[in-house]
């Protein structure tokens, strides 16, 4: 076999691969832009096989922050968005990119922090907890990535009457990263951080961290699902996307969400109104 022959053969192999890859792309699927919290908490790995079996439609999930996921859908690169930032979702619909927002489920945010709790932030009141962290200038890690969790964090600071722009100092670390990476940073710095409970429960590298604030009604975190507007992007798989949304809000989908548990603890609470 000459070198030229080797080149020919590998070219053939590579063409064959691209062909297989494109055939693979022919399967029936929808693309869902979602958040790192749903992916990294393991919810999708639990949820999607049930839908795929029932409907025969594969769901390809691209997990990003809520802001990025909505942007991806604005460009027409997703059929459905499944995110958690009501204000941003309503803006998305008002701009004409989405058809309709439907509520699917909620989970809650928790403040994670060092078990020794140097800021004495432990309690049930999120705003009080944040005020104590700021007063103690205890290290706090922020997502800083325009995600739903980041948006929620900024809302809480504002509600606590703390003007971050003025109070931001060395103690406030803006990391611009996803939930997991931000938790890794917090674990290595022994810092406080706002996290969604799902990702925290599924997170392994906890170091000295534990839950500091939980149970406040304001920590409620609502997830919504939206079909990308086919008027805006003609190639959106309207029928299949709608099937996925319909399944999520019916009894089957809602039950599958409720069934997802880590260590006996339920992560997401279905609350679709239909």
């Amino acid at each position: 076999m000459s070198t030229l022959n080797i080149v020919r053969r590998s070219l053939l192999a590579s063409c064959a691969f691209l062909l297989v890859a494109s055939l693979h792309a022919q399967e029936r699927f929808i693309t869902v832009a979602s958040t790192t919290s749903t992916e990294q908490s393991g919810l999708f790995a639990h949820l999607l096989p049930a839908f795929e079996k029932a409907a025969g439609i594969k769901v390809r999930v691209v997990a990003l922050g809520t802001g990025q996921a909505l942007d991806m859908a604005r460009r027409g690169d997703a059929d459905v968005v499944f995110v958690h930032d009501k204000a941003a979702e309503e803006k998305f619909i008002a701009e004409g990119y989405g058809v309709k927002r439907q509520e699917v489920m909620y989970n809650d945010f928790v403040v994670i922090g060092p078990k020794a709790d140097p800021a004495k932030a432990t309690g049930k009141d999120i705003l009080d907890g944040l005020r104590r962290i700021e007063a103690a200038k205890a290290p706090f890690v922020s997502r800083g990535d325009k995600s739903g969790t980041h948006a929620a964090e900024l809302r809480y600071w504002k509600a606590a009457g703390i003007d971050l722009a003025a109070k931001k100092g060395d103690w406030y670390r803006d990391t611009g990263s996803g939930m997991g990476p931000a938790l890794n940073t917090a674990a290595s710095m022994n810092a406080y951080i706002l996290a969604d409970r799902g990702t925290w429960l599924n997170f392994k590298n906890r170091g000295e961290l534990g839950i500091v604030v939980e149970g406040d009604k304001q920590l409620f975190n609502q997830y919504g699902v939206i079909l990308v507007n086919p008027v805006r992007h003609a190639h959106v798989k309207q029928a299949d996307g709608q099937k996925f949304i319909d399944w999520l809000v019916t009894t089957d989908g809602q039950k599958a969400i409720a069934d997802y548990k880590i260590g006996g603890e339920q992560l997401f609470f279905p609350n679709a109104t239909k």
Binding site: A21, S22, A25, T31, R75, G76, D77
Partner: peptide
Amino acid sequence: RAGPLGQFGLLFTPT
């Protein structure tokens, strides 16, 4: 999809 080669639907594929 909003880009110049968007019509081919290649984003998020091995290609």
